[in-house]
Design a protein around this nucleic acid. Structure first.
Lengths: 323, 323
DNA sequence: ATGAAAGCGCTAACAG
DNA sequence: CTGTTAGCGCTTTCAT
């Protein structure tokens, strides 16, 4: 066994197979014709040397990576599960690899990673989850014509970037209508998502429309932060309860915050749904495990992922076709 | 506005700042001294041209990427949330970027992505989640001395690869002891994890040890597939019930399958815990939302992530130091 | 169908 | 402190 020598390069393969590196490259990429037995020799050499082309060299020379990137603020929330499934499936189907990159909430200007750009980090295009990219960076990408698609977020109107968004307002409105009409709720609290989240804003708008349609005055004290997570929601509802606010229903902007509401309510001895009704949004896995099962609105998250990649790939191909 | 011209390179910056490309490189990497005002000019040029170094070129030239990769079989399971948090935090702390790559369960030998290697896909090292890599590929990586650390899985003993694993057997044993001693359970079913999963195997072993210690005979019919997911577990428990198997407790190898057991039990009109007790493992978020709250065992998943990266970084640095 | 040669954009000695 | 000069390993014309 020789000492761990450097891993083989295309030249090693070429030498081993007694051909030029160009030929090796051709069999690697199958883009140009290679004679049957020549190709066979090359393949044998590749196998024998366990040659694996260096991605960086390939990318540098070819100027494309055949991979799409996904930017996520923080991975792991159950919401991402179907989104990723969709993105992964579609990317693979289109012959692209997928690289996921989580963005830090706190920009470390001084970190060694600063100055590197995600976009150029070896991808041909980017699917960007809402709020996980800086506006200036987005503008820059758009300016250099780098393929990007935004999900769950509209592009600032100054820059035309494709977007995949979902319907929220109507779903929210119907949910609240139901609370009012069927369950005779009149004091309905709303748990907002993270600051600036468009889905949450639209759900809130649907909520307001419903109240208005039923001549129920809005009460600002009944609107608080759910933050799309259990902890924030739990705290907010707990605070409401401590302040002796009166409400007969909680509309949580997502299921995670609905779960937080359940916890706070239970802890205060409130019964669900007898004392307070709780509804959520997204139809995430948690919904069916809550007791009673959470009323929620189904969102086609996986399809958003697929649509986003499909649109992205179209952009990438377009660029390659032209120049 | 000029037509979308090629994005600027280091030479453009050098020209703009009237310095050599080496100097630009130096201010980029801050590895060698550069005079204050020279650096200033270069920075201005970079900003003005919106120069972003091409990752591929950097990697090719420097032979390292400053990023670590993570291989996951399928992302999004709640289990991964804390794991990712740990990995991300530690990688960032060490000055590394993180790229997540999900591996397909079904190898597409013919897919365009086939033949590319994840390992060399622009990372300096890999954290590999259990069962998400092929044994041959693992051997190859080891042979070429590529830094890898395995999590939740021991390395095949023929290859010495660092590993971060957790304690399972004792936790499982104590959990089952408790079921027997405190709750006088005698017929305890076990829901296994995916085939070959080591954590599950060890938990199962702890379960068997406990039974044996209490002179309770093992009943193979009471062991079925939970698959670390709700659906499989639900189906298995449903089948047990349909077959009129008698059991007074279910030990699910993870919380997800415990949730599935809840569903099947409820559906059959069984009360938890009066008729059947259910316990899980991992202490995942779902545990506290089940009714009654699931008894489970806390697993330091996030710490596994941190430890894995920390070990990986050590390997990478070691390689760089020597050569 | 195959080879030769010119880069891709950057880092890393090596001089000075 | 700064510039020059080789490459890094691969793809891609352009010939043949």
């Amino acid at each position: 066994m020789p000492y761990s020598r450097r891993s083989p390069t295309i030249s090693d393969v070429a030498r081993e197979a007694s051909v030029s590196i160009a030929t090796v490259s051709r069999v690697l990429n199958a883009k140009a014709p290679v004679a049957g037995n020549t190709a066979e020799r090359v393949r044998a050499a590749i196998e024998q040397l366990e040659f694996v082309p260096r991605a960086a060299a390939r990318i540098l020379a070819s100027r494309h990576t055949d991979t799409v990137g996904l930017l996520l603020p923080e991975i792991g929330e159950s919401f991402f599960s179907p989104l990723l499934r969709g993105i992964e499936a579609e990317a693979r189907a289109a012959g692209f690899d997928l690289l996921i990159h989580t963005t830090s909430h706190i920009p470390h200007a001084s970190s060694p990673a600063a100055g590197r750009s995600l976009a150029e980090h070896n991808t041909d295009g980017l699917v960007v989850f809402t709020q996980s990219i800086d506006l200036n960076e987005l503008k820059r990408l758009h300016r250099i014509n780098f393929p990007v698609v935004l999900t769950f977020q509209r592009a600032p109107k100054s820059i035309a970037i494709p977007t995949v968004i979902i319907e929220n307002q109507r779903g929210a409105r119907e949910l609240v209508d139901h609370l009012i009409a069927v369950h005779t709720c009149r004091r309905i609290a709303f748990l907002q998502g993270p600051d600036g989240n468009e889905d949450s804003q639209q759900r809130e708008h649907g909520y307001r429309l419903s109240l208005r349609a039923h001549h129920i005055p809005e009460d600002p004290t009944l609107i608080g932060l759910g933050g799309f997570n259990q902890e924030d929601a739990q705290r907010t509802v707990h605070d409401w309860l401590s302040a002796h606010l009166v409400f007969d229903a909680v509309f949580a902007a997502d299921d995670g915050s609905a779960a937080g509401a359940y916890l706070a309510l239970r802890q205060a001895g409130k019964r669900i749904p007898q004392d307070v009704k709780v509804v959520g949004y997204d139809d995430s896995p948690i919904a069916q495990f809550l007791t009673p099962p959470l009323t929620t609105v189904r969102v086609p998250i996986e399809q958003v992922g697929r649509a986003a990649v499909s649109q992205l790939v179209r952009q990438i191909r377009g660029r390659r076709a032209n120049g």
